[in-house]
């Protein structure tokens, strides 16, 4: 079903955001189709195994387009998570420190 947990998380996020009316499923399908077409145009036809990478790109794009967040915030948050992993000892839960 899902090869890695992030795929399930990304899947559920798109479904939930659409259910809550942040975008229609038609808009979602269009965004995903555009990501897939763009990948093919770059010479990266997908054998299906990278499908969720495109899914995440579509999700990021819609989240930004619909004003739910912005690219800088997402990028900063990503780095914060990476940082949290680098500085959390083994065996402890990885938590995000507040850094406003």
């Amino acid at each position: 079903m899902f090869d890695e947990p992030w795929q399930a998380q990304a899947f559920a996020l798109a479904v939930k955001l659409s259910e809550q009316g942040h975008f229609s499923w038609t808009a979602w399908a269009k965004a995903l189709a555009e990501e897939l077409a763009a990948a093919e145009a770059r010479g990266e036809p997908d054998d299906g195994s990278h499908y969720y990478h495109h899914w995440v790109s579509a999700l990021e794009r819609l989240v930004v387009e619909r004003g739910l967040s912005d690219a800088a915030v997402l990028e900063e948050r990503k780095e914060a998570w990476a940082d949290a992993y680098r500085h959390t000892p083994h065996g402890q839960p990885v938590e995000l420190k507040r850094r406003e």
Partner: peptide
Amino acid sequence: RVRALESVL
């Protein structure tokens, strides 16, 4: 990237 999206939302 997914973690970031999820936690922000």
